[in-house]
Design a protein around this nucleic acid. Sequence first.
RNA 1: GCUCCCAUCGUCUAACGGUUAGGACACGAGCUUUUCAAGCUCGGUAUACGGGUUCGAUUCCCGUUGGGAGUACCA
Length: 474
Amino acid sequence: MLVRTRFAPSPTGYLHVGGLRTALYAYLFAKQNNGTFILRIEDTDQSRKVEGATEKLIEALQWAGIDFDEGPGKDGNHGPYIQSERLKIYREHAERLLNEGKAYHCFCTAERLEQVRANGGTMYDRHCRNIPFDDAKKRVEAGEPNVVRMKIPDDGELKFHDVVRGDVTFAFNTIDDQVLLKSDGFPTYHLAVVVDDHTMEISHVIRGEEWLPSSPKHILLYQYFGWNIPKFAHLPLLLNPDKSKLSKRQGDVAVEDYRAKGYLKESLVNFVAFLGWNPGGEREIFSIDELVKEFSIERVGKAGAVFNLEKLNWMNQQHIKMQASEKILPLIKPLLQEKGWNSFSDEYLLQVIGLMKERVVVIPDFVNSCNYFYENPVSYDETSRTKNWKPESGAQISRLAEKFKSLQTFDSASIEAALRSTAEEFSIGAGKLIHPLRLALSGVPNGPSLFHMAEVFGKEVVLKRMTAALEVLK
RNA sequence: GCUCCCAUCGUCUAACGGUUAGGACACGAGCUUUUCAAGCUCGGUAUACGGGUUCGAUUCCCGUUGGGAGUACCA
């Protein structure tokens, strides 16, 4: 069977992390089955139109490494891939249902529907369902506003098999006569998905659990049209810490938010993949290519998963450590630019990245948590100062500076040797020199290995900073 | 309210019906180190409850409770 999956977001202005995971699963499933992954834009709600949203969506997807094979701008003979460009198709299909008596025109006003609900009705009362077809047609031709509703059978039930949930059953008498075509001529989601998924030959509908309750309507439509029913997989929801459906308000939900905060696409993708699924082993760090190999839709869980920022932080740390410094370089350059620190060579920055990689959580840490690589200390940490800068420190650091001056090669090994021999001269432990020097060079009490740090700074900077510190020390 | 879905450490999760219920994050202690991270070692915390079925239930069935989603001319 040819596998074709799709991600069908509505263009709200950003890509939700829940959407990212849905897209990812659909992508992984398609790729591992040599299938096709399709992007379709569901923009049938005119009132929610957002300018530039589709572009942002595509950009976020592309950033995450989820490439679609067909979609806006990538024709695959199943387009167009934007629903607002497919209006004619939906209308034709609605027409067909109307003619076959599987749908009907409804002339109820918003006010009347509200009334019905106010009177305790939880569903549409099917007021227009029995208007004779010809009468309805006349009223439509006369220009009376109307919608098209699908006829749900009076009784019986609909049972279907969901790939992640197993068998699910709904009784028809609990299902509303769903609006298929709105009075503005646009289809509702329910008509559009079914028509599109069928015409685009989607084999597996992978989507969030929030769609589970409307699935019977969709399946009934497939039956009305006489079409093959695709496989359905309803994914567990992503949750806020309070277990409600993940939403803004309780934190960032947009992929671009995480990108902006300095999370690697590798970690966001890895993290989100593990929300509701895992490969069964004990390994947790995977690249997207490895995920394609490991993923199995059968192992997707049923329970919702809380989006846990702390674990994401840890994963980001892991991925940063694994990442080649060369790949990190372009990510920190714009941040340095903002700070006005743009006089550093790639070679220098690569060394900084090498030293900082293991002690960083998000990308901006490469810039913000270690100013000393980019500027001379503007102050010296108070606590460390009283702790490490003793009256005798001045003389010791002066002596150390002299030794540094005479060093031919200024690398970490020779720096360390010089420091240790100086410590011996004064009959003190190396630590008595290391801490004061660290403070003198960086202004803060912690950071990467002192000797490596000094090597990266270079002899000139080190000596300059030592002299500056000595001024304060006196 | 009604319909549907779900239920293992605080969180993400593993466990052919047979395990001292495993791992990871977070947390605590220690080791290592010049500091901070990282790393390593150790530690505590879970099968919601009640009934069945079974020689034996985290696992299968029923109920209860709890949580969630849906209930629009939104998706």
